[in-house]
Design a binder for these strands. Structure first.
Length: 440
RNA sequence: GCCCAGGUGGUAUAGCCAGGUUAGCAUCGCCGGCUGUCGCCCGGCGGACCCGGGUUCAAAUCCCGGCCUGGGCGCCA
C-alpha cells in the first residue's frame, strides 16, 4: 500500500505538462522521473518527466534545509521523485515557467550510470535500444509512436463499430500448418503438435456466415527468416471480412478507414505528431487504383524485364513507389500468385479479384473477393497442391450456405510506420520479436 | 535460406588500409568548483580493443573459424 502521507500528496498531484505560466503562484505536488540534472552549485535544475511531459524544477539550495539539500545531491537519472513546490512564471526558463521546489523525496531510486541514456545525448544503436527497451520507451519521441498507435487502434475500432462490424477473436493456436505461404511456428500443445496462427483468414471467412461483417485486431506469427526493416515474427493484423460483398466494397472500407485514422490523429495527436516532426495530411479517397497489368507496363517502360505472372520484387515495388508517393491500390493480380481462397475473375480466370494497398513501395494490406463456392474451393485447393481433407473443418462451412464475401488484412505496425514516418518496424512494436530477438 | 557490412570503456565513436602510440574524443559515473542552466560550464579521477586459432620479434590493426549485430534479397503484412 501507499503511505497515507504520499496518498494525500497524490490527491494534489499536478502533471508536469500542466505546469504552465498561467498557474503562476500555485502550490503543487509533482510526481515523476528525473530526466536530467543540471547542478550549478547553489542552483540546481532538475527536469522531471511524467506521462504528460516534462517540467523544470529549480532548487535554490541556499533557501533549503540541509536535509532537502542532501536529497537533491543524491538525485540520479530516472529515479522516481516527489517534488513539492510553487509554480513561478520564469522568462529565463525556456518553457517560460518552472517549479520552485520546497522539498523533494526519492520514491524509487535508480542505479547510477544506466545502461542506456533516455535523454538521447549519446546516440544508441537499435540493438542497444531494444535491449533496454523500457528506458528507450521513456524517451518522448519513442513514447509518442505508441501514444499515436493507441489512437490508431481506437480510431479503427470506432470506425468498424460504426459500420456495423462485430469484433471477433479467432484462435492463435491452430492444429495444422496447411494454409500455405508463410512458415509457421511449431509449438507443443500437451501431447500434440500445434502451430501459432499466421492469420485469421479461414476463421473470419467462416464467421461471416454468422455475423456478416467481422473484424479482428490481433497478434499473428510468421516464422520467416526475413531480416529487414519491415519484418517481425510477431505482428498485429487488422483484419476484416464481410458477407454479400466483393473486392470493391472492401477496398472502399479500407481507404475510408485509412482516411478516418488520419483525421482522428490530426484531431487527437497534434502534439505527438509535431514532436515527431510528422506533417500528416488526410489522403484523398478513393485512392488511385492500378491493375497488375498497368503496374507491369509502367515497370517495363522503366526498363524492367518482368514476365507476366511474376510477382513484383522489392526493387520493382521501390521503383513503383517513386511514381506513387502516397496510398494506392494494385489490383487484379495473376491468380497463380494468390492464395487458394482468392476468387478468379469470371471473364479471365488467369486474373484474380485481389488487391494490395501500398504506401509508396511498402505493402500495407492485402485482400480480395473470396471463393464462396464449395466446388471451386476444392478445385483451387487441389490446384495449389493442398489436400482438401486437411481443410475439412473449413470446407464444410461452404456446404452450409456461404454468401459471396470479401475482406482484407492490414499490417498494423506497417501502417503505424507510415503514419509516424518510422523507417524500421521495430520502432512501432513495444517489444519486437524478430529472427534473432526473443527478449526482452 | 542466400548476399553485404560491422563488433574498441556503460553508451557513441577515432585509430585498422600502410602492425610497434601511456589506445584519442564525447557522453557517462565519482570528487571538487560555480545563482539562471536548459546538449550548462570548468578542473580532477575512473572505465574498453567480441571469442578462439594462426602469421610475426611484435596484433585493436593482417589471415582463418566461431559467436553477436545491422542491412539487403527471396517471401510477405
Amino acid at each position: 500500500m501507499i503511505e497515507p502521507r504520499i496518498k494525500e500528496a497524490l490527491k494534489g498531484r499536478v502533471m508536469a505538462g500542466e505546469i504552465v505560466p498561467e498557474i503562476d503562484g500555485k502550490s503543487v505536488n509533482v510526481f515523476g522521473w528525473v530526466h536530467e540534472v543540471r547542478d550549478l552549485g547553489k542552483l540546481v535544475f532538475v527536469v522531471v518527466r511524467d506521462v504528460s511531459g516534462m517540467c523544470q524544477v529549480v532548487f535554490r539550495m541556499d533557501e533549503l534545509d540541509e536535509s532537502v539539500r542532501d536529497v537533491v545531491r543524491k538525485l540520479s537519472s530516472e529515479s522516481v521523485i516527489f517534488v513539492k513546490g510553487t509554480v513561478v512564471k520564469q522568462p529565463k526558463s525556456r518553457l517560460g515557467v518552472e517549479l520552485v521546489a520546497e522539498s523533494v523525496e526519492i520514491l524509487g531510486k535508480s542505479v547510477p550510470r544506466l545502461e542506456y541514456d533516455p535523454t538521447g545525448k549519446v546516440q544508441a544503436s537499435m540493438d542497444v535500444r531494444l535491449k533496454h527497451r523500457i528506458l528507450d520507451l521513456r524517451r518522448p519521441e519513442v513514447k509518442n509512436v505508441f501514444i499515436i498507435g493507441n489512437h490508431v487502434l481506437k480510431a479503427l475500432r470506432d470506425f468498424f463499430y460504426q459500420r456495423g462490424f462485430v469484433e471477433v477473436r479467432t484462435p492463435k493456436i491452430i492444429a495444422s500448418a496447411t494454409e500455405g505461404g508463410a512458415e509457421l511456428f511449431e509449438i507443443k500443445y500437451f501431447d500434440k503438435q500445434a502451430f501459432l496462427a499466421q492469420s485469421p483468414q479461414l476463421y473470419k471467412e467462416q464467421l461471416t456466415t454468422v455475423f456478416e461483417k467481422v473484424f479482428e485486431i490481433g497478434p499473428f506469427f510468421r516464422a520467416e527468416e526475413s531480416h529487414t526493416r519491415r519484418h517481425i515474427s510477431e505482428f498485429t493484423s487488422v483484419d476484416i471480412e464481410q458477407a454479400f460483398s466483393d473486392m470493391d466494397d472492401v477496398m472502399e472500407v479500407l481507404e475510408e478507414a485509412v482516411a478516418h485514422v488520419h483525421r482522428v490523429l490530426l484531431d487527437k495527436c497534434g502534439k505527438q505528431l509535431k514532436e515527431l516532426g510528422v506533417n500528416l495530411r488526410v489522403p484523398k479517397t478513393p485512392f488511385p487504383r492500378i491493375t497488375y497489368d498497368q503496374a507491369l507496363e509502367i515497370l517495363r517502360q522503366e526498363g524492367e524485364n518482368i514476365k507476366w505472372g511474376e510477382d513484383f520484387s522489392t526493387p520493382h515495388l521501390r521503383k513503383l513507389g517513386k511514381k506513387f508517393t502516397s496510398y494506392y491500390y494494385i489490383t487484379h493480380f495473376p491468380t497463380e500468385i494468390k492464395p487458394f481462397y482468392i476468387q478468379e475473375k469470371a471473364e479471365n480466370p488467369a486474373l484474380s479479384e485481389s488487391f494490395d494497398l501500398m504506401f509508396q513501395w511498402l505493402e500495407l494490406a492485402s485482400g480480395g473477393t473470396r471463393v464462396s463456392d464449395h466446388d471451386v474451393l476444392i478445385r483451387k485447393l487441389v490446384q495449389k497442391g493442398l489436400d482438401p481433407k486437411m481443410f475439412e473443418d473449413h470446407v464444410k462451412v461452404f456446404r452450409y450456405g456461404m454468401p459471396v464475401h470479401a475482406g482484407w488484412g492490414l499490417g498494423f505496425e506497417r501502417f503505424l510506420m507510415v503514419l509516424t514516418r518510422r523507417t524500421n518496424i521495430r520502432e512501432t512494436v513495444l517489444f519486437p520479436r524478430d529472427r534473432f530477438r526473443l527478449t526482452p
